[in-house]
């Protein structure tokens, strides 16, 4: 004998419109739909806010994302909001006081290399030395202004602290928010 199918009686479970025998099972739920339309309005508003924030740079790569920190001998331009896996540049502009005997020594914390993903440094330093939780780069230099750029490509989303310090000058402590 063959297997018997599993069955259950058909019930009138779908809500109907109309009256009597001419009613049609449509299953409309207008109350839910009105809530959904309200939700859609909110979502479109949120989408608009996200777009405006993006254009302004709150999600990186825009006007509000740019940051500048200065000490007497160093001006640091960077992006306070960066995007993971997306190139970003940290520019160090040195003053005359940063140059000692034709050399600039600048310390950058390890976080610039790892979570902020330093890819290249231009120009190439004459010497690099690791220690004290970071790297000290030595550049040959003549007169100010002298500019060094560090190309970054952050890999980990989150807030990352970093430190940059020129020999004989105050240190700059900054934060970069990396968005996914």
């Amino acid at each position: 004998m063959g297997a018997q199918p599993f069955t259950s009686p058909v019930e009138d479970s779908v809500p109907k419109v109309g009256e009597g025998e001419k009613a049609i099972a449509v299953g409309e739920n207008l109350e839910f739909q009105r809530k959904w339309w309200r939700f859609e309005r909110v979502v479109w508003a949120v989408f608009l806010v996200i777009l405006v924030c993006d254009v302004m740079g709150l999600l990186g790569r825009g006007w509000l994302a740019k940051a500048k920190a200065t000490t007497p001998e160093l001006t640091l331009d960077y992006e306070r909001v960066a995007r993971a896996g997306t190139p970003s540049v940290m520019t160090l502009t040195f003053g005359d006081g940063a140059i000692h005997e034709g050399k600039i020594r600048v310390y950058v914390s390890d976080s610039v290399v790892k979570p902020l993903g330093a890819q290249r440094i231009a120009p190439q330093p004459a010497m690099s030395m690791v220690g004290d939780g970071g790297i000290t780069y030595t550049f040959d230099a003549s007169r100010a202004p002298a500019v060094v750029q560090i190309a970054l490509e952050p890999s980990f989303p989150g807030v990352h602290d970093f430190t940059v310090k020129v020999e004989g000058d105050q240190e700059i402590d900054g934060k970069v928010l990396v968005v996914p």
Binding site: G18, G27, E28, F32, W37
Partner: peptide, 24 residues
């Protein structure tokens, strides 16, 4: 199911258009 698919919506019934549903 309703969240993912939405609800069926009546557009015309008893010779009346559901104007809000049509416009939305």
């Amino acid at each position: 199911a309703q969240l993912l698919d939405g609800s069926p919506l009546i557009l015309l019934e008893k010779k009346q258009w559901r104007t809000k549903t049509l416009s939305k």
